[in-house]
């Protein structure tokens, strides 16, 4: 029997209305998902699908108004500050934009020791930990005394990963961590994610708009569309032979980097769109 690390059940996220008598905005409409220890669950969707909001609700940064999020059986969807502080040992985050996720006026050392000092770690022990973390993400030790602006996007993302690893979490929510990076940097950072997972057994909730990235990293994949999960299952299955019409459209929309195969792919896509339109029409008349 496999243990469940994170169990998301029928979660609803509603943002309070802006303006008098306006309706609240429902970003997530009842989503269920589970993550096992050491597993990568990919969450794919386009802008506005609610994938980032789901990640933020796990982190306690989005208001969960319905359903439950359980971490190892413990309800965390509306955790108090003190509970959150305890959870910071367990759940961490890597954000998309390496330019705004690091405080520009703090040195790398300050950024990395911040979570440690909350734990009241001794200065010397903290410094040792910083050196270990920099090793883990393959940055030189002299990076510690520099400011984020001295680093490239890929290097900054390594710092963000090191910060997430500082407390040895069991789950890291990765919100589009490679989409702001160049192609070759992206590949290297993804290898780093896999390597860290294999070494430490950390689980990832990996959020991305890119089906190819998710396929490469994920054991299981969920596809979100308009605040709901439309397809959820084995990574290979969902990203190669999807069943839901939206996932099919998503897969067909991504161009293949080969001129001849892409020409065929393009024709297939137009055919698929035609079939789906026909089905919609039939469903409408039925």
């Amino acid at each position: 029997m496999t243990e469940t690390l994170l169990d998301i059940k029928d979660v609803v996220v509603e943002y309070p209305p802006k303006g008098f008598r306006a309706k609240p905005f429902k970003a997530i409409k009842g989503v269920s998902l589970d993550i096992r220890p050491g597993e990568t669950v990919g969450l794919v969707g386009e802008s506005g699908s609610g994938k980032t909001t789901l990640g933020r609700s796990v982190l306690g940064l989005a208001p969960v108004t319905g359903g439950s999020i359980k971490y190892r059986g413990q309800e965390i969807s509306n955790a108090t500050r003190a509970q959150r502080r305890e959870l910071s040992h367990e759940i961490q985050v890597v954000f998309q934009d390496p330019y705004t996720s690091l405080n520009p006026s703090m040195t790398i050392e300050q950024i990395l020791t911040e979570p440690l000092t909350v734990r009241k770690m001794e200065r010397q022990a903290a410094n040792k930990r910083v050196a270990e973390l920099l090793d883990q993400v393959r940055l030189p030790h002299d990076a510690a005394h520099r400011l984020p602006r001295e680093f490239s996007g890929g290097q900054r993302q390594r710092v963000a990963i090191a910060r997430a690893l500082a407390l040895d979490p069991k789950l890291i929510v990765c919100d589009e961590p490679v989409s702001a990076l160049d192609l070759s940097t992206q590949a290297r950072v993804m290898e780093l994610f896999i390597e860290i997972q294999e070494r430490t057994g950390v689980a990832y909730l990996f959020i991305s708009h890119d089906l190819a990235v998710v396929r490469h990293l994920s054991h299981r994949v969920a596809v979100m569309y308009h605040g709901e999960i439309v397809e959820w299952g084995d990574g290979g299955q969902v990203t190669s032979a999807p069943e839901h019409p939206y996932t099919q459209r998503l897969l067909m929309a991504a161009p293949i980097p080969d001129p001849d195969r892409q020409a065929k792919h393009r024709a297939d896509r137009l055919r698929l769109l035609g079939i789906q339109r026909e089905q919609d029409v039939q469903a409408g008349f039925a």
Binding site: L61, S88, I91, F95, D97, E114
Partner: peptide, 20 residues
């Protein structure tokens, strides 16, 4: 800013976030 969110996830209290 995302770094303030990251600090929250790290378990920092409000006073510390404001201060730092």
């Amino acid at each position: 800013e995302l770094y303030v969110d990251a600090a929250r996830v790290s378990g920092l209290g409000d006073v510390r976030i404001i201060g730092r």
